[in-house]
Design a protein around this nucleic acid. Structure first.
Lengths: 146, 146
DNA sequence: AAGTGTAATTAGAATAATTCTAAATTAATT
DNA sequence: AATTAATTTAGAATTATTCTAATTACACTT
C-alpha cells in the first residue's frame, strides 16, 4: 500500500520530474510522500526503513536512486553535517540548519532572502552560486518554564 | 627533515595545544606547517602524501589523529562539501567557502563579521552556535581579458 | 642513568555510507 | 504485441574514516 500525495503535490511532483524527462514511478512518489509527511531530516537508511513498512519490496539502492532524482528535480534538498550521513529536507523555503552537537537534533532556521542576497554580494563577479548552504553547529539549551 | 614553523606560529601552535594539555609533537608540527605553507584546502590523504615527502615514517592514522587535534585546538578548520573527503583550512578569519562544481576548485570568500552576527540574530534565544559554516556551490566563470 | 606512567604513533583490520554492476522488471512508444 | 529505454533490484565493490592493539616517545621519579 503506497503512500499517496495530495493532488497539489502530485502535480508538483510530476511536473518537476517531467522537466528532466524522469518518470514519476511508484517508488519515487512513495519516497517523496514519506519525506513530505514527516517533516524531519531523515537519512537514506531511515527512509529505507520507513519505506519498507508500506512498500516491503523496495531496495536500498532504489532509495538512493530516488533520493538522487528528487534532489536533481529540486523537490527536496540535501543536508550534510560534517561527515555524517546525508539527510534530506522537504523545506524548499530559504533557510539554514542548526545542528545540536549534544542531542543530534537538526532544526530548520528560516532566514529572509535578504541575507542570501547580501551573501552573494561578497562573491567576485565571476562566481555564480547555485546553492548556498548555511549550517550552524552548537547546542540547544533547555528553556526554563517556571 | 621536518618542516619548520616560523617563531610566531611556533608560539601559537604550542600555546593552542597546551590549553588542551596536548603535546606539541614533531608530527603535529609537521602537519600544521604543511597546511600553513600551502594555503589550499587539502584532504587528509593529500596531506599524508605531502607529509611523507619530508617525513617518510608518518602513518595515515597519525595524519588523521593530528588533524583532529589541530582542529580541536582551533589551529585549523574543517571544510566539508557534500560527501567529499573532509578538507582542512588554515584561514581562521571569518569566511565562507565557494566550491566550483565544474573544476572542484575551492576558494575562501572573506565576509564581514556583521554577516555572521546578523545570521545569529535569526536563531531562537536558546540556540547557542559554536560554529557557522557557509558554503556556496556553483561555478566560476572565466573572466574575459581583452 | 634506570624505571614508571601517560600520551602519541603506527600498521593493519574494521566499519559504514555510498556507489557500482549486471540482470530483471517496468513503462512508454511504435 | 513488439521494441526501446529507463528504472529497479540484490549484492558486490569502493572509499574515507575510525578502531585496535602493540610499540614508541616523553616527562618525571628514584
Amino acid at each position: 500500500m503506497c503512500m499517496q500525495l495530495n493532488p497539489k503535490y502530485k502535480t508538483i511532483f510530476k511536473e518537476a520530474l517531467e522537466i528532466s524527462s524522469l518518470k514519476p514511478t511508484k517508488q519515487r512518489e512513495h519516497i517523496f510522500s514519506l519525506i513530505l509527511n514527516k517533516k524531519d531530516h531523515p537519512t537514506a537508511d531511515e527512509i529505507f526503513t520507513r519505506s519498507r513498512e508500506t512498500m516491503p519490496s523496495i531496495s536500498l539502492a532504489t532509495v538512493y536512486n530516488c533520493l538522487e532524482t528528487l534532489v536533481e528535480s529540486g523537490l527536496i534538498r540535501q543536508v550534510n553535517f560534517e561527515r555524517e550521513s546525508t539527510r534530506y529536507c522537504p523545506n524548499l523555503k530559504p533557510h539554514a540548519h542548526f545542528h545540536c552537537k549534544k542531542t543530534g537534533a537538526i532544526c530548520d532556521v528560516d532566514l529572509p532572502v535578504s541575507i542570501f542576497n547580501s551573501l552573494k554580494k561578497h562573491l567576485p563577479k565571476n562566481f555564480q552560486p547555485e546553492q548556498i548552504d548555511i549550517n550552524f553547529n552548537g547546542s540547544i539549551h533547555k528553556t526554563k518554564n517556571h
